[in-house]
Design a protein around this nucleic acid. Structure first.
Lengths: 336, 336
DNA sequence: GACCTCCTGGAAAACGATTGCCAATCTTGC
DNA sequence: GCAAGATTGGCAATCGTTTTCCAGGAGGTC
């Protein structure tokens, strides 16, 4: 294991000089010594020991990213955006997946705190559970107290900088668009009642329908994934249009209808949310609300790394979704 | 910033005792002191400084994972499997995405070496470029020389433990299955010529056709992603069955045919490779070769962490793919 | 030529843990 | 009741950097 001391000795300089040459420093080093050190480092195959560097500097070059599930393209896209920014800044990314277990989320924040990561990004919906949220906040506060930076993608519930997708607004806009196509009787595949992202999308959707004087939609709860959409779709009765609160659930719904011989969009229209890139080639192509996921991930990291602005209010940056009408929804004659 | 020394003082014990209580040690500590230390740690909100721990122990609790692109579900599935094992072992995962740039891959290995990660997992196809491969090997050797462990998913080209999918064999088996359906004239959307995974799948496929006495397929090269499949499909002439060397390309091919009014499978059959979970709900559902991606990622990490078996030959573990015939391919009458 | 400033190089003190060794106490077998 | 052995606690060295401070030399000004 080659250490900086080896390099210094080999180059005939002091430890301090070697350090100044090889790792950024404000101090200048004379050209001849500088060359000697660089050559010695190359010859010996020296690699900085980042642990020692982190210890000495008191700051690491790592950021932590906590997501629910990397195989969910939603989180993969967020992660991709965050990693793009991280690379630009010369930072490494430590990824933790909670698989939707809030306890694990808390534990990972503690672990990332122990790692003294520069910033923690929390992606994914908060859950409506005051006890868990309080303990997560405590853990985050502990982290923040020692200089840690935090940003979230999702709801502004943790007193941290947040990139907040316009879930309610996007769903409302979608509801109005679908109503504009002539739909009157809706069902919502609503996901888990405790998931705030799901809640917001449901309430935005139903609120907009109410605003148009339309009857309340049928709500079917279930899991937030493909199978949840599949199962929930089977319980839909008497609707011309089904809104699944995310694209992956919409895919499940499409499969469910297909398996039962119900045609989309002829017999029922289906809409989702997120506009996952991998799913854009579905047939029928999915009407949805587009979120700029990769940019949201990137933006969240930028927020976290931005100027600390001590004691200032945490910033919340709203991102609005854009309704994209595609083949999975069809227009109805006014008589429906 | 609470340090172990603060905890020790607060508990009225020595640094050594506090360390032994709070971080695993073979040494026993008496019950009363142990309780005092634990309480002090809790009260003060102590979090181990992992950088210091890593430095003192000379070993970190982090593994590095190098992938091409996290938004590609292939890599997401591999990463998911690796992270499952990592969590079981109490390790954190640092993820680096190369976006298929081999220079970045080399640079990331150097960075992960500097981080003194316990193991590096290299996922994704090697490229057929001796110069780059040599420099990557040099960097890996440097890492290995200091005790680093390495495993790959893909080709056994780096002298490291490898989980090697049976690309050639799987493609050959697929070719035989498709021939069994009556197909005689094939096209292969072959991806980039320098990508070894793509090469292997192409050669396995064409080899099997030759073995059956069938004419060589039309080869169309292109990028390894959805758009590559889309574009390559447009150049196919006179084939009853198209093999895209991965599922994502097959999705592009399906879209291309659809856009041009060519029906799948009535007018042409399409097959892919990998059996990506997110794409299982496509219509027509994709004939493909299933790889246990998540398990492969998990296995790779297990190999890397396994007993070091000094100077032993690197182990290569073969994983075979399983042909899954689905709706995107149809049987032809013997006359074709 | 004296004095001051600026610049470069090195010695040594952190940074926050782990752990080898020694000493003190407690068991245990006789 | 005592020696030998087993436990337990603490001191201090160590891990590989960064960075503060100090010393010496070069260059500039009066």
């Amino acid at each position: 294991m080659v250490t900086l001391e080896d390099v210094a000795r080999h180059a005939g300089v002091s430890l301090a000089t070697a350090s100044r040459v090889l790792n950024g420093s404000t101090r200048q080093v004379g050209a001849s010594l500088r060359a000697k050190v660089e050559q010695a480092a190359r010859q010996l195959g020296y690699r900085t020991n980042v642990a020692a560097q982190t210890l000495a500097r008191g700051a690491s070059n790592v950021i932590g990213l906590v997501v629910h599930d990397l195989t969910d393209p939603y989180f993969a896209a967020l992660a991709d955006g965050a990693m793009r920014v991280a690379e630009e800044q010369g930072l490494m990314v430590m990824v933790a997946t909670t698989h939707r277990d809030p306890e694990r989320e808390i534990a990972y924040v503690a672990t990332l705190n122990a790692q003294r990561v520069r910033a923690v990004l929390l992606a994914g919906s908060r859950i409506a559970n005051p006890g868990v949220t309080r303990r997560l906040r405590e853990e985050l506060d502990r982290y923040r107290a020692t200089g840690g930076r935090i940003a979230c993608v999702g709801q502004d519930l943790l007193g941290a900088d947040t990139v907040a997708p316009g879930n309610a607004e996007g769903a409302a806009e979608l509801a109005r668009s679908l109503a504009g196509l002539g739909h009157r009787r809706f069902a919502v595949l609503a996901g888990p009642p405790w998931l705030i992202t799901a809640q917001d999308r449901v309430s935005g959707f139903t609120g907009a329908l109410a605003g148009l004087g339309l009857p309340a939609p049928q709500l079917v709860h279930g899991t937030f994934d493909r199978d949840g959409g599949y199962r929930a779709a089977a319980e839909v009765t008497d609707a011309t249009c089904v809104f699944a609160v995310n694209d992956v659930m919409a895919v499940g719904a499409l499969a469910s209808f297909r398996d039962r011989g119900i045609r989309v969009p002829q017999d029922v229209s289906v809409a989702g949310f997120d506009d996952i890139a991998t799913l854009r080639d579905l047939v029928p192509s999915l009407t949805t609300v587009r979120l700029p996921l990769s940019d949201m991930g990137a933006r969240a990291l930028e927020l976290a790394l931005g100027p600390s602005e001590e004691a200032q209010e945490p910033r919340t940056e709203r991102v609005s979704g854009e309704v994209v009408l595609r083949g999975s929804t069809r227009g109805l004659t006014p008589q429906g």
